[in-house]
Structure formats: structure tokens, C-alpha cells
């Protein structure tokens, strides 16, 4: 199976696509439908559409509802504030193949169990933004809006409930300084089910291929150098 070159797009509650830098600065990019349309035309292997929660409540089903008629033929994963209520609405006629979870991985896994029943285990993706600090890994918890320490049990649980994970280098996000591969010293998950994201360079992508990761999810670079997708394969 081929190594996947995906793209991450952030979406705000007004239907605008956002660019994010170092997990802090956000810049409005434009209409999300146009962004999806272009990524589809660039033939990325998959699109990861994330609504950044950052401690706030969002109406996920309402935010996503306007996208249903976007005519794309590229695999789509969506995430950000998916709870039991929004899950029912957004899985009625899913125009996406997979669901992305963050907060639900840490605390109550019930919504992930419901999603697995509705869409299958293959549809469950964990979203793991991280920072490395003093030789430890800290993982972002979106409901609490902070990076926290995690135990061995977290990795065990992640492995059992998520089919794949997107591992995001939060410090490198949006830039071009490179992904911090040291994370794999602290990360306990089968690497053939990992996609990496955050500041990826061409060298990083080659390294990810060599490591036999599942793929990469490019951030801002995709929309700045759109014709590069084929060259990255």
C-alpha cells in the first residue's frame, strides 16, 4: 500500500479555513469550500479537516453541515468537538470516511465507542498534538486547552481505540523548520498506523517513508506550493 500524502485544514465556526502557526497564531485563509476544492484538484491522498476546539464549545454538526454539498472525490476525515449529539447528526449521510478525536481519547471513550459502532474501527483517528519539554512528551488536550503529561495507560488505550493517529509537532506547525522525530523515543504506538504533521520538509517526508509510517499530513505548505504534491510522492 502506498505512503499517503495528506493535508490538514483548520475550520472555524463561520465556515472559514484557517492557517495555524506554532499552534498559536491563526490566519483566515478563505472559504473552506474553495480550499477543499483546490486540495481535491491538487490530488492530495486525503484531507484532515479539524475544527480547533481549544477549550471552547462548538456546534460541530452545524459547522460541518454546510460542507455536505462540496463536490470532492478525495477521502475526508473530520474532527473537533465531535460528541454524542453531533455524532448522530454528522453520520446521517457521511460525506467523510473517518472521524478524528482528541479530548475523547483522554477521558470518556463513550463517543468513540459509538462512532466505532456506526462507522467501524477503520474510521477512528486520534489527533495527537505534542511538545517535547525537558525530555518528556506532553500531549495537547483540547477541552482543557493545555498540554499534559500522559501515562503508559494512555498509549495502551490509544492503541486499542484508534485505528490511526495524526502526530502533530505543535511547535513546528505551519512553518518549515522540520518535524521533531525525537518524539518517537517517547511515543508508544505502531508506527505503520501513524501520520505525522507539523512543519514538514521534503527530507522529513523521505524519512517518514523510510520509517514506513502510514503517511504525512501537510499543513500550510500544501496551500503555498500546491503543485508540489506529485513531487512529494
Amino acid at each position: 500500500m502506498s505512503f499517503r500524502i495528506g493535508a490538514t485544514v483548520l475550520l472555524d465556526c463561520n465556515g472559514k479555513a484557517l492557517q495555524s502557526y506554532s499552534f498559536q497564531t491563526k490566519r483566515v485563509l478563505g472559504c473552506i469550500k474553495n480550499v477543499l476544492f483546490f486540495l481535491n484538484a491538487y490530488k492530495v491522498d486525503e484531507i484532515h479537516l479539524i475544527i480547533p476546539l481549544k477549550g471552547k464549545g462548538v456546534n460541530t454538526s452545524k459547522t460541518l453541515a454546510g460542507l455536505k454539498d462540496t463536490p470532492i472525490s478525495t477521502p475526508l476525515s473530520v474532527g473537533g468537538g465531535v460528541d454524542s449529539v453531533s455524532l448522530i447528526e454528522i453520520t446521517k449521510d457521511p460525506y467523510f470516511e473517518r472521524l478524528i478525536f482528541n479530548s475523547s481519547i483522554f477521558d470518556d471513550n463513550e463517543v468513540i465507542k459509538q462512532a466505532t459502532l456506526k462507522m467501524g474501527h477503520q474510521a477512528i483517528v486520534g489527533y495527537i498534538p505534542f511538545i517535547l519539554k525537558k525530555n518528556t512528551i506532553k500531549i495537547y488536550h483540547s477541552k482543557r486547552n493545555k498540554f499534559i503529561d500522559v501515562s503508559d495507560k494512555f498509549w495502551e488505550n490509544l492503541n486499542s481505540i484508534c485505528n490511526e493517529v495524526i502526530l502533530l509537532d505543535a511547535n513546528a506547525e505551519g512553518g518549515g523548520k522540520g518535524f521533531n522525530f525525537k518524539v518517537f523515543q517517547f511515543f508508544n504506538f505502531p508506527i505503520n498506523r501513524v501520520l505525522i504533521s507539523g512543519g514538514l520538509t521534503k527530507l522529513d517526508i523521505s524519512k517518514a517513508k523510510e520509517m514506513k509510517l502510514a503517511g504525512v499530513s501537510l499543513d500550510n505548505i500544501t496551500l503555498h506550493s500546491e503543485f508540489s504534491i506529485r513531487g512529494l510522492r
Partner: peptide, 9 residues
């Protein structure tokens, strides 16, 4: 072995 099949062929 509870594997899944995701991606392009």
C-alpha cells in the same frame, strides 16, 4: 488480527 486496510492501491 484485527487489522484494517486504509489507503491507496
Amino acid at each position: 488480527d484485527k487489522k484494517t486496510h486504509n489507503g491507496w492501491e
